[in-house]
Structures are given as structure tokens and as C-alpha cells.
Design a binder for these strands. Structure first.
Lengths: 149, 149
DNA sequence: TATAATGATACCATTTTGGTATCATTATAC
DNA sequence: GTATAATGATACCAAAATGGTATCATTATA
């Protein structure tokens, strides 16, 4: 299956969680991990990674946590994927052409490159601002007791 | 790194090799494996897989081999990727939404779906006919002895 | 009938993946 | 000022995936 790995998915959940808070809010790993169903020790590592990658500011010590270091409007899904997962390569030859002895004469190579570009372009246009706005809409969980008004 | 695996790359090379032959040509695993730099035992398995998936016809016995079962114009890169690799999912939730408890309320989910569609669409439009035509052009390997005319 | 081909499948080592645990450091709250 | 609640860094682990090999059976031709 051609797919991002679970850690990348978790990281996206975590950043979405941050993006949905009022600007400047500090969130603990505990809280986000529970809210987004990420195993706590893994969430620890992912928060660190996202902080080291410049997405988050850290606040150490009691009462600390993490807050966004950049505006959600300026964080794309692509950046997060590549921070956790490494490059969206589609095929190794797009990243390490020198390792494929056929590459200079391979008509498939350029299609891997173009397909990768199409995918990166799409993911690069999805911002966490958009995602957060969409999530904030009233939920579609019909209340068993009746209407939601 | 988000990438297809090596087997998928090998399978694409193999199909390209077949698509570049005159229609109806039978090719042995030996020959294709050497020409496309695929380890022979692995090529064996990939030919089998491609035959079982309906891309190739097999010719058993001495003098046998494999030939295309379908026109290269009607085989897309997407089909080959999915035959070897499984679905182009981009994220598991696009394939097994029931396994993600957040999915009904997750704004990222629909972006994984759309990005996947964009990628599948692109790969679906690349045919081995096109690839083979491009490959058949005169090579750019300047002959050390001089011009190629 | 020997041989050259595929069919099927078991096997293996290495790497990646998803996850846990631990110790060190920091800053707040009281 | 000290206990505590948070992060920093990193080592560790089991299980799965990956890339690759080997083997025996079958088939059809030369």
C-alpha cells in the first residue's frame, strides 16, 4: 500500500489540534494525545520533532507545553508530511537519481517526477488554517435526544 | 520517504521492456532481467505476478517466455503500481475508514482522499504505449567513435 | 528424452515501523 | 527553596515489511 506512515498521520492530528485552539494557546502532550488518540509516549516524540522542525514553540517546566510557532495559515500538510516522513519522493530515483543506472534513459523516471510534483503541489496548498476552519463548523453528530437547535 | 517500493519499480521496468518489443514478442525472464537490471529470482516472481494480474500471457516449456496480454496503450502506470503495491491510499483511512475513530469528524481525512485522487488520476493517464514511444527515440549516448549517423 | 522455460512457494536476513521506558533538565507553584 | 509537572534526548524492543534467494514441480519444445 502506498501510504504515509502512522506517525505522519499522528503528527497531522496534533498540529490540527493546535491550529484549532485560540492563537497562542499552550497545550500539553497529555491533553493533545488524549484528544487526538495518539499513544502518549509517541506523542512525546512527535511534539519534540515538530518543535525541532520549527512548527512549535516549547514551554518547559510545570505549567508548560507547546504552542504554534507559525501561523496555521502558513503551515501546509506537505511540510508536515515531509518533516515526519522525509521527502514525498514517489520513487527513489526522484531523490537519488545517481543510484539508478537507467535513469538517464528511462522514460518512466520523468513520470515519477511529474506525478510527485502533482502530489506535492496539492499537499502544499492545504493549510492547517483551512483544516482548522473546517473542523470548527458545527458537528454532524445528531443528538439522540433530538435536534441540535 | 513516501515512495513506491523497489518491486514496483522493477515491475514497471519489466512492463516497459515488453511494451518496447514489436507486438506479440515473447520475452524470457532471463532476457528482461538482464536488460532491465532486475535480480533474476525477483524478476521470476514479478513476471508471475504480472501474468496472474492479467498483464502478461505466459508461454511455458522450452522456448517459452512472456508476452503482453493487453495493448500497452491500455495499461496505465497506476494499474501496475496497484497490482504490485496494493492501493495508492496515501493514508490508511482512505482505504479503511472504519479503522479510524476520528474519521467522521476529521477535516484532514477528505484532504487525504482528494490528494490521493489527484495522484491516482495522474498515474492513470500514463500509458505504457506513451512510455515505450518515448523510449524508442534515438538514444543520447554519443558514440565515442563519433557521430551516430 | 534431455532441456529450457515457467508455477508455486518456502525461506531468510535486514530494515523499518510503531511503540515503550528512562534519565536528565527546566521552570513554575506553593 | 523545594516538590512537582512539564519537556529533551535517547535507548530499547517486538513485530511487520522488504528485498532477495532457493527449490521442487510442471510443461512443452528441440
Amino acid at each position: 500500500m502506498l501510504t504515509i506512515n502512522r506517525k505522519t498521520d499522528y503528527a497531522a492530528r496534533i498540529l490540527l489540534h493546535l491550529a484549532m485552539q485560540p492563537p497562542g494557546t499552550t497545550v500539553t502532550v497529555q491533553e493533545a494525545a488524549q484528544a487526538r488518540l495518539v499513544p502518549y509516549p509517541l506523542a512525546r516524540r512527535l511534539f519534540s520533532l515538530l518543535a525541532n522542525a520549527g512548527f512549535l514553540k516549547t514551554h518547559r517546566g510545570k505549567g508548560g507545553g507547546f504552542s504554534l510557532a507559525r501561523s496555521p495559515a502558513e503551515i501546509s500538510l506537505l511540510e508536515v508530511v515531509e518533516a515526519v516522513e522525509g521527502p514525498v519522493a514517489l520513487n527513489r530515483c526522484t531523490v537519488e537519481p545517481q543510484e539508478c543506472p537507467l535513469v538517464s534513459d528511462c522514460p518512466v523516471h520523468e513520470e515519477w517526477v511529474k506525478a510527485r510534483d502533482v502530489l506535492r503541489d496539492y499537499l502544499g496548498r492545504v493549510s492547517f488554517q483551512q483544516l482548522a476552519e473546517r473542523a470548527i463548523q458545527p458537528r454532524n453528530h445528531p443528538d439522540p435526544r433530538g435536534g441540535a437547535q
